[in-house]
């Protein structure tokens, strides 16, 4: 049976581990050619090699404009085109404690990766998608982009900004068959939660009506769906994968 992403060429950021790694592996299984990017070069190279000929790893700090230009160029040079972008790279910092407490450099760093990174990715990927005649951009936001929380102001601001950046880009590019959607995971048990500790993770699991956090693959399935032809009428939407947290 042909894969659901046969013929697609994708860039996935933050793909060396966790959710991005799961997305890259699933994309390849569904027939896509995948460029994995990250700042963790050794780990990223290893994952790309394990996936095989359909994958390449390129270094990318998503907050750096010149690096984005190079990655998009290298992707097209390697696989001939670009049709899918998954802005997955994201950070959460423990020092992002509250509006008064969060230092300005922490605020700037979170915004640079989580929001500016996705903006730059779209800015340099759209022209290639236009040439290819279609595209699907999937921005990994969070339930923190839908509801407020008791802390993490920079994280909530970045993810909320990404939610509306997504809708705005969706409207701008709809006529060119470039779809833009956001995914909103609840708690996913990956390294992004390490700064918060085991106890916090156990508490967080209990906020979810299903009583647990998600595995990376459970988010990746949603990303595959949005990248595939099954979602050709889906743009500007929020796919919430949160075990029921925001239904409450």
């Amino acid at each position: 049976m042909a894969g659901r992403l046969e013929g697609e060429v994708a860039i996935i950021t933050g793909a060396a581990r966790g959710q991005g790694e799961a997305e890259a592996r699933m994309f390849a299984r569904e027939g896509a050619q995948v460029v994995l990017t990250d700042i963790l070069d050794e780990r990223g190279e290893t994952v790309a090699q394990e996936i095989g000929a359909a994958a390449r790893y390129f270094h990318l700090d998503v907050s750096q404009e010149d690096q984005w230009q190079k990655v998009v160029q290298d992707t097209v040079a390697t696989f001939g085109r670009l049709t899918v972008l998954v802005n997955n790279a994201g950070i959460g910092l423990r020092e992002d404690y509250g509006v008064e407490q969060t230092p300005l450099d922490v605020w700037n760093k979170v915004l640079a990766v989580n929001l500016t990174g996705a903006f730059l990715g779209m800015k340099y990927s759209v022209p290639e998608m236009r040439k290819a005649g279609h595209g699907s951009i999937i921005n990994i936001s969070s339930i923190a982009g839908i509801v407020g929380g008791g802390g993490l102001p920079a994280y909530h601001a970045s993810k909320g900004g990404l939610r509306l950046l997504t809708k705005t880009a969706a409207i701008q590019y709809a006529k060119e068959k470039i779809r833009v959607n956001s995914v909103h995971p609840g708690g996913v048990d990956t390294a992004i939660l390490d700064p918060f500790g085991e106890k916090w993770k156990q508490r967080a699991a209990k906020w979810h009506p299903v009583g647990r956090m998600a595995e990376s693959d459970e988010i990746a399935y949603g990303v595959v769906y949005l990248a595939s032809k099954e979602a050709t009428f889906v743009t500007g939407t929020e796919l919430i994968i949160d075990g029921g947290v925001t239904a409450q």
Binding site: A170, I171, A174, G186, P209, V210, A214, E215, E218, I219, Y221, G222, V224, Y225, A231, F233, V234, T235, G236, T237, E238, L239, I240, I241, D242, G243, G244, T246, A247, Q248
Partner: peptide
């Protein structure tokens, strides 16, 4: 594939 998706309203509305 949607085992972790619940309580979601999935818009299929062309934007």
């Amino acid at each position: 594939e949607a085992d972790y998706v619940t309580g979601s309203l999935l818009m299929v509305d062309g934007g």
